[in-house]
Computed example of a mutant assay.
Amino acid sequence: MTEPYSCDIMRCDTLVRRLLPQMRAEMVYRLVNERGISQSEVSKRLGISRAAISQYMSRKRGFNREDFPGDLETVIERWVSAVASGEGTITICDVCRSADPVGRE
């Protein structure tokens, strides 16, 4: 890590349970609508069912009207790029650091 970060498993667990479904829904939506990748291909790349992709696209799964906290828009865009290109990764720590400025020292 380039900056000190106070990692707390309970805080990270709470953030991830609350944010990851919404982030995944947004990422799937962007892959299909902005990157033009088919729903079947997104399903294969993410290792999730085609039905789950359909639910993300119809906003039946993971949809939340709240804005993303912190710098999560940037993390989502990095995730979209990583899945679209097959290069790069996003970690749970990336999500926590971006979503929870309280955890930063």
Score class of each variant (00 low, 15 high):
residue 85 S to H: 01
residue 65 R to T: 08
residue 89 T to K: 13
residue 96 C to Q: 13
residue 95 V to I: 15
residue 50 R to C: 02
residue 95 V to H: 04
residue 68 F to W: 03
residue 24 R to F: 09
residue 94 D to V: 10
residue 19 L to H: 09
residue 29 Y to L: 03
residue 50 R to Q: 15
residue 55 Q to V: 01
residue 67 D to H: 02
residue 1 M to W: 10
residue 39 Q to S: 07
residue 52 A to R: 14
residue 63 F to Q: 09
residue 8 D to C: 13
residue 39 Q to N: 06
residue 49 S to A: 05
residue 75 V to I: 15
residue 55 Q to C: 03
residue 92 I to S: 04
residue 1 M to A: 15
residue 88 G to T: 06
residue 53 I to G: 00
residue 96 C to F: 10
residue 98 S to Y: 00
residue 72 L to S: 07
residue 6 S to C: 11
residue 70 G to H: 10
residue 1 M to G: 15
residue 71 D to N: 15
residue 46 L to K: 08
residue 21 P to C: 05
residue 52 A to W: 03
residue 62 G to S: 04
residue 50 R to I: 11
residue 103 G to A: 14
residue 89 T to V: 05
residue 89 T to H: 04
residue 39 Q to P: 01
residue 39 Q to D: 05
residue 11 R to P: 01
residue 7 C to A: 14
residue 34 E to H: 11
residue 37 I to M: 14
residue 45 R to G: 08
residue 59 R to D: 09
residue 86 G to M: 02
residue 50 R to L: 12
residue 3 E to S: 06
residue 67 D to G: 04
residue 96 C to N: 14
residue 72 L to P: 11
residue 11 R to Y: 02
residue 88 G to C: 06
residue 44 K to N: 08
residue 64 N to R: 15
residue 100 D to P: 08
residue 27 M to E: 04
residue 57 M to E: 01
residue 12 C to A: 15
residue 104 R to F: 11
residue 33 N to F: 14
residue 93 C to M: 06
residue 37 I to T: 02
residue 99 A to G: 07
residue 37 I to L: 13
residue 20 L to Y: 08
residue 83 V to W: 00
residue 34 E to F: 05
residue 28 V to M: 13
residue 64 N to F: 09
residue 92 I to D: 00
residue 4 P to Q: 07
residue 48 I to S: 02
residue 43 S to Y: 05
residue 20 L to A: 14
residue 10 M to I: 13
residue 1 M to K: 10
residue 41 E to A: 14
residue 56 Y to E: 03
residue 72 L to K: 04
residue 103 G to V: 14
residue 58 S to H: 07
residue 5 Y to M: 13
residue 60 K to A: 12
residue 27 M to Y: 00
residue 29 Y to D: 14
residue 103 G to I: 13
residue 98 S to R: 04
residue 52 A to P: 00
residue 94 D to E: 07
residue 86 G to W: 01
residue 16 V to C: 09
residue 68 F to D: 05
residue 72 L to F: 03
residue 50 R to T: 12
residue 16 V to M: 14
residue 76 I to W: 01
residue 48 I to A: 01
residue 32 V to E: 07
residue 10 M to C: 05
residue 88 G to Y: 02
residue 2 T to N: 13
residue 23 M to W: 04
residue 18 R to A: 08
residue 105 E to L: 15
residue 43 S to F: 07
residue 31 L to H: 11
residue 74 T to D: 05
residue 75 V to T: 12
residue 13 D to Y: 09
residue 15 L to I: 07
residue 20 L to W: 05
residue 101 P to T: 11
residue 85 S to G: 00
residue 53 I to H: 01
residue 45 R to H: 06
residue 17 R to N: 10
residue 42 V to F: 12
residue 73 E to F: 02
residue 97 R to W: 04
residue 26 E to G: 13
residue 4 P to D: 10
residue 23 M to A: 09
residue 28 V to L: 11
residue 20 L to P: 00
residue 69 P to A: 07
residue 19 L to P: 13
residue 34 E to L: 12
residue 39 Q to V: 06
residue 27 M to N: 00
residue 86 G to D: 01
residue 73 E to Y: 03
residue 59 R to L: 09
residue 103 G to K: 07
residue 63 F to M: 08
residue 92 I to T: 12
residue 75 V to M: 08
residue 69 P to L: 07
residue 77 E to A: 04
residue 16 V to N: 11
